[in-house]
């Protein structure tokens, strides 16, 4: 199963377990929707999102699935399906972002693209020393399309946002702490323990006070999210994406994310 979740009192843990690295395609999207549909919001004070796969938190969008979808239809006829996916993933990300509880993301290893965008929905990010963050989208002829840019800009300086997006370079956990993206860094294997401690704190607080503080401190950047979606859909309809994905899926390079 790509996703599984458990409840311990008022704390829910969502485990991402899709090999090789929690690629987000239709299956993962459906599972995220199912999780949110089943989540008992009223009786939950904290949600911990973590990965059980070795490679990392998430490598991002399922690029093979996207490529296969693109090449299976004539140019210009894929737009409705991509737009539908983007609409659905935005609802999932926005819902996670605004949950009236403390959400904690535990990141180790790869946290790239759509995976990075998922992590950015969390209130508190705990990074293990191995964590590495990257937005490689420009290499594919697109920009992040799951709401990543407005969420990143909400947390870190515009200069860092531009550096990450316009170079496509990846940064480590120490840099992520320094630029304000991550607030806690722990040793390898200690992320879940640290996140559970944060979750326990949430259970001690008045729920209204917690939800109000979160809403006050972390407003949803609605207008920019809509704008990002429009930019993404325009770029995704161009041949550059298909060409870049063709190169990516046929690459045997150990570091296919390098430009």
């Amino acid at each position: 199963m790509p996703l599984s979740w458990t409840r311990n009192g008022e704390v829910v843990e969502l485990a991402l377990g899709r090999e090789p690295c929690n690629e987000i395609g239709l299956e993962m999207l459906g599972e995220l929707e199912r999780f949110l549909g089943e989540l008992d919001v009223e009786n939950t004070a904290a949600l911990v999102i973590h990965s059980t796969v070795r490679g990392g938190f998430s490598a991002g969008a399922n690029l093979r699935e996207l490529y296969e979808g693109l090449v299976s239809r004539p140019v210009g006829e894929q737009a409705p399906e991509i737009a539908d996916f983007i609409d659905r993933i935005h609802v999932v990300m926005d819902t996670l972002d605004m949950l009236p509880m403390t959400t904690i993301g535990v990141v180790h290893g790869v946290c790239f693209g759509g995976g990075f965008e998922l992590a950015l929905t969390c209130d508190v990010l705990v990074a293990e020393r191995s964590a590495r963050f990257c937005f490689p989208e420009l290499r594919l002829g697109i920009l992040p399309g799951f709401g990543g840019i407005p969420r990143l800009r909400r947390d870190v300086s515009n200069a860092v946002v531009r550096d990450l997006l316009l170079t496509g370079r990846s940064i480590n956990a120490k840099k992520a702490i320094a630029c304000g993206l991550v607030s806690q860094m722990v040793a390898p294997g200690e992320g879940l323990t640290a996140a559970r401690a944060v979750a326990t704190q949430a259970t001690k607080f008045d729920r209204d006070a917690l939800a109000t503080t979160k809403r006050f401190m972390k407003p949803l950047p609605r207008a920019d999210l809509d704008l990002e979606k429009q930019h993404f859909l325009r770029l995704a309809a161009k041949p550059a994406l298909r060409e870049a994905l063709h190169k990516f899926v046929n690459s045997d390079d150990l570091r296919p994310y390098l430009p």
Binding site: G56, V110, R129, S130, S170, N172, R255
Partner: peptide, 16 residues
């Protein structure tokens, strides 16, 4: 004998 995920980890280790 490392894979692409370990290559990413190696970068972080070297930087630190």
């Amino acid at each position: 004998g490392i894979d692409s995920f370990q290559a990413v980890e190696l970068m972080s280790e070297l930087e630190m």
